[in-house]
Structure formats: C-alpha cells, structure tokens
Simulated scan of single mutants.
Amino acid sequence: MKVAAFLAGCDEAEFGTVAAQTSTSASVLSKAATALEDAGYVRVRKGHVGRRPRTWLCLTEEGRAAYSAHLRALEDLTALARTSTGATLEDS
C-alpha cells in the first residue's frame, strides 16, 4: 500500500527513492514490485545513469484505478464505522 501511495503521487520514481521514502528494504520492495508488476499494477523500467544500473517504477493505469478503488473502499468502511458508532470527525 505504501508503494502504491507513493507512486500515485508521481509519474515515475527511481527504486532507491521509493525504498527510502516508504521505509521499505530493497529486498521487500523488489518482491513487492515483482508482485505488483505481475498483477499489472506497476511498470518496471531498467536502464543506466552513466555506468550505474537503475530501476524505475510507475503505476500503470490499471494500478492507479485499483489504488483509487482501494481508497474509496477504505473511505466507505470509515464512513460506515462512524455511522455505526455515532463518531464524528471531531472525535477522531
């Protein structure tokens, strides 16, 4: 979720930046990126900056749609919980 949230705010981000900004280890991010790529949610692009290999990640259109749907579902659950408990925004 953190990776998708970070990538939702940009067109593309370098792997190391995503790892640092989401406090995710490189190995965990690598596995997550592979799983998200397999699901069609993330595009992985490899290249070089000078002689150094680099990897960039970006959400696909399908990934952005899935992330937006996930946020809407969370908002719906939050609203339902507030309605059920009588909680208001001021109570949060």
Rank of each mutant, 00 (worst) to 15 (best):
E14D: 09
H70A: 14
A20Y: 15
T24Q: 05
S23N: 13
R64Q: 12
T22G: 11
L7W: 09
S25R: 08
A87K: 12
D76Q: 14
A65D: 09
G16N: 08
A26Y: 12
L77I: 12
G86W: 03
A13Q: 03
L71P: 01
A39T: 05
L89C: 01
A33H: 04
A20L: 11
D11Q: 10
T17P: 00
S27M: 12
Y67K: 01
L77P: 02
K2Y: 10
A8Y: 03
M1C: 08
G40W: 06
C10L: 06
G63A: 01
T34E: 15
V3F: 05
L7G: 08
L7D: 04
T60W: 01
A39V: 03
E12N: 11
L36S: 00
C10T: 07
V3P: 09
L74Q: 09
P53Q: 14
T60R: 01
Q21M: 11
A4K: 04
Q21T: 04
G40T: 08
H70K: 07
R43W: 07
T78L: 13
A79P: 07
A8F: 06
K31W: 09
V49W: 14
V18L: 08
R51Y: 05
L29D: 02
W56F: 09
R72D: 09
V28R: 14
L80S: 13
A5I: 04
K2G: 11
E62W: 02
T88A: 06
A33G: 10
D91H: 15
R64S: 13
Y41D: 08
A33C: 12
W56K: 03
G63F: 00
G86Y: 03
A20W: 07
T88C: 05
A69Q: 15
A73F: 02
V44A: 09
L57V: 04
R54F: 09
E90W: 12
R43L: 09
S30P: 01
C10N: 08
V28P: 02
A79I: 04
H48W: 07
L89R: 05
A35C: 08
S25K: 11
A32Q: 12
A4P: 00
L74V: 15
E90K: 14
M1T: 13
L77E: 15
K46I: 13
V18S: 03
R82M: 14
G16Y: 01
D91E: 13
E62N: 14
L57I: 01
D76K: 10
L74W: 08
Q21D: 14
S84P: 01
A79M: 06
T55E: 13
A13L: 02
A26Q: 05
E61L: 05
L80C: 04
G63W: 02
A66W: 02
T34V: 15
A5N: 04
L57Q: 05
T22H: 07
R72T: 10
F15V: 00
E62K: 13
F15E: 01
L74T: 04
A8P: 00
A39E: 08
R43F: 09
E14L: 10
V42W: 00
D38F: 00
D76P: 00
G16Q: 02
L80Y: 05
A8C: 07
K46R: 15
S68F: 07
Q21W: 07
